[in-house]
Nucleic acid binder design. Structure first.
Length: 298
DNA sequence: ACGCCCGCCTGTAAGC
DNA sequence: TGCTTACAGGCGGGCG
């Protein structure tokens, strides 16, 4: 479940913990986690001996800049975790699929029970190859250089924290499609980083139903949605993300986030809406659960 | 061409 | 009590 706020929390911690560290050894114990590479050895060879220079993020992707110009890309999928181990002797965590050991000491582990997550090293394309790429609508906005460097991510939409559009341009994105709001918020090609949890929280905060069509909003409603998106995500980052009962999101040190205590709708079916006291509803939307307040969201 | 939905996975928990 | 089944969902790909 890690979405933008959880990934951003990890990005902040990683930039303190691993920037400047040199990778001594990489062990892959489940090849599925590095499935974009032909072999686990190909992945290892691109990482061993490299030094981590920076840690960026686009949407739900972590981008670790390497000293040779390549980028280590990490996506946590549903159940991925990164764990900072003090040493390789620490008790193993079940479902640890990739282990990195640093020359300065300490380990970074990639743990992922459901194996939807992945890691890969992205090598920049030649200028001819790059010219042949389809230009995503977000290209040209601030920060697009980072995205172009990782061509695998060239199709991602704008990041609402790193590269938020003006509300007027956001209105254009909404009017470009005629799609239900929750689908648009979760569409990574349009907006990068929002998943099932935060889409519900943003829509409640904006007072809009999940099934309202994106091109049906008044100017006031567009502004409310814009404000809700920025505020909810920023607030969630401040509280180090959400840790839910089954998802078990934890940070590098194994600590949970605390934003779940501020959730207004997600996983609150049958509980009273804190704004109007009517009961929070649960519905199926595109074979996914959706929580909302029938009274507060129109 | 585009939108929907399955398959990939495992752990947890409800239900019979 | 113990087994089976449903559910959780990000994302790529396939099908309609």
């Amino acid at each position: 479940m890690p979405e933008l706020p959880e990934v951003e929390t990890l990005r902040q911690d990683l930039s303190k913990e691993v920037v400047g560290k040199k990778v001594k050894a990489v062990a892959v114990t489940n090849g599925r986690s590095v499935r974009r590479h032909k072999t686990a050895k190909a992945f290892r060879d691109l990482l061993e001996g490299r030094t981590f220079k920076s840690v960026g993020r686009v949407g739900k992707y972590l981008l670790v800049g390497l000293d040779d110009g390549n980028t280590l890309v990490i996506h946590l999928g549903m159940s991925g975790q990164l764990h900072r181990a003090k040493s390789a002797k620490e008790p193993k965590i079940k479902h640890t699929h990739v282990t990195m050991t640093f020359t300065q000491g300490g380990d970074l582990w990639f743990v992922d029970p459901r194996t939807f997550g992945e890691m890969f090293v992205s090598v920049p394309l030649s200028s001819e190859e790059q010219a042949a790429l389809p230009v995503s609508f977000a290209a040209g906005v601030e920060g697009a250089a980072l995205r172009r460097q990782v061509h695998e991510l060239s199709e991602l939409g704008f990041d609402p924290i790193e590269n938020m559009l003006s509300w007027e341009r956001f209105a254009v994105v909404l009017r470009q499609h005629s799609v239900q709001l929750k689908a648009l918020l979760m569409d990574q090609h349009a907006i990068a980083g929002i998943g099932n949890v935060y889409s519900d929280e943003i829509l409640f905060s904006a007072g809009l139903r999940y099934d309202r069509l994106s091109d049906s909003l008044s100017t006031t409603e567009v502004r409310r949605l814009y404000r809700a998106m920025v505020e909810i995500l920023a607030e969630a980052i401040k509280h180090r993300g959400s840790s839910l009962a089954d998802e078990q999101y934890v940070d590098l040190e194994g600590k949970t986030g605390s934003y779940q205590q501020f959730h207004e709708v997600y996983d609150r079916e049958g509980l009273a809406c804190r704004r109007c006291r009517s009961l929070i509803q649960k519905a199926k939307f595109q074979s996914r659960s959706t929580y909302f307040c029938e009274h507060c969201q129109i």
